[in-house]
Amino acid sequence: MINLKINNLEVKAEEGWTVLEAAKFYGLEIPTLCYNEGLSVYGGCRLCLVEIGEGPKSKLVSSCTYPVEEGLVVRTGTKRVIEARKMMIELMLSIAPNSKAIQDLASKFGVTQVRFKIRNEECILCGLCVRMCAEQMDGRAIGFQNRGYKRKISTPFDIKSEVCRLCGGCMYICPVCQLKCQGPDADTTVCNACLTMDPTCLDYYDELQCWMYDAGRCGTCVRETPEKSDSKEQTRNSKAKEKNV
């Protein structure tokens, strides 16, 4: 057993756990994007940052990759963490403002401005699709290529992959193209309306990153509006409908 402190709470964790796993075990919420329980950790989105250590030597690390250590002091909500997190969300919004997942994060963490040039790309290079394809689906049809600002995800030679089995896993797991946000404001690029709107589904897929090269014909990315939602959501939705009249 390893003893550490998270937000002044004395916690115990198993050897080999990451700080994120320890926090989750104790019900402490740390936002994530590129993390998925069923896939290996990546640590690329930098949302799960926490501050470790104290005093001048404290630093920010991604909790999903940082292993628990005896005596480690972790804080998940310091000023540094919050500012870094907000900037990450702002950067992500500037790349993919149409992603509901990112707009939701913006609402939740109070990001109300995007001060960078909007790129309107549909990929934030979180790598979930790559790991999904390789680890869960054993396909290895897509992967990271190039480096730095030219980094991208694609198939070998940018043509249809011989090993792609059209399973749709990549589409399924992608936080950007799962759900489209219909409400980003033209001026601010921030939506903040998803708490009052119906979850939307994809109505269009022209500029999708679809490695199955079927441009939507496979039907994976087009979904029915969920009929069954929990009671909270239902009340929220009906209230919204009333307002919109």
Binding site: A134, R140, G143, Q145, T155, P156, F157, V163
Partner: peptide, 8 residues
């Protein structure tokens, strides 16, 4: 080695 890794 998967081709995609070589390309990477």
């Amino acid at each position: 080695v998967p081709l995609i890794n070589i390309i990477g």
